[in-house]
């Protein structure tokens, strides 16, 4: 077990959004912006934006990582660019009113189904074990209980009010 895999999630977190040089097995080097470090396998996901507009993703497996060196800190712009990379299309196209409408409609629908909902800022907390983030679609539900998750997701899916 190498040193890199022994790190804690907070330590890996500090590498995210920075440009790094990863030295892997057999002195192979990879360079790129850190999108994430998988906390299970310690694999580093590196992203390189090419001039052609394409994006090159390289993942170095955690067990092969020998050294990671930070070259450059990424600013908020890079942070935004990276986090929008693999995320679902999100709510970029929706206005504040539309989001509010979606949230209210979902809350009313869940209450109609006798499911307790509490609003916490932009997030809807369902029965204290599940949260729904904007834009309040089935893919925006998160919970550690997969049974509740799938029940609520199908409820969200079946909301009769067109969103």
């Amino acid at each position: 077990m190498n040193e890199w895999r022994e790190k804690k999630p907070q330590e890996w977190r500090r590498y995210v959004n920075n440009e790094v040089k990863v030295t892997a097995h057999e002195k192979q080097e990879c360079q790129g912006w850190v999108f994430t470090v998988d906390p299970v396998s310690a694999s580093v996901v590196l992203v390189n934006f090419q001039d052609t507009g394409r994006t090159c993703v390289t993942v170095v497996m955690g067990h092969a990582v020998e050294a990671v060196e930070i070259l450059k800190e990424g600013g908020p712009e890079m942070e935004e660019r990276l986090s929008s990379l693999f995320m679902p299309t999100g709510h970029h196209g929706l206005t504040k009113q539309e989001l509010q409408h979606r949230k209210d409609s979902l809350r009313v629908w869940l209450e109609k189904n006798r499911i307790p909902v509490v609003e916490e800022g932009e997030t809807l907390r369902v029965a204290g074990v599940l949260s729904v983030d904007p834009p309040y679609g089935p893919q925006d539900c998160s919970s550690s209980n997969e049974i509740i998750l799938s029940r609520v997701q199908s409820l969200v899916q079946n909301n009769p009010v067109k969103m």
Partner: peptide
């Protein structure tokens, strides 16, 4: 708690990269 938060953020990003 903080560790779990960092872990879930990192893991979610990794799973999304696998999906992609």
């Amino acid at each position: 708690r903080e560790e779990q938060q960092a872990r879930s953020l990192l893991r979610q990003r990794y799973l999304r990269s696998l999906l992609a």
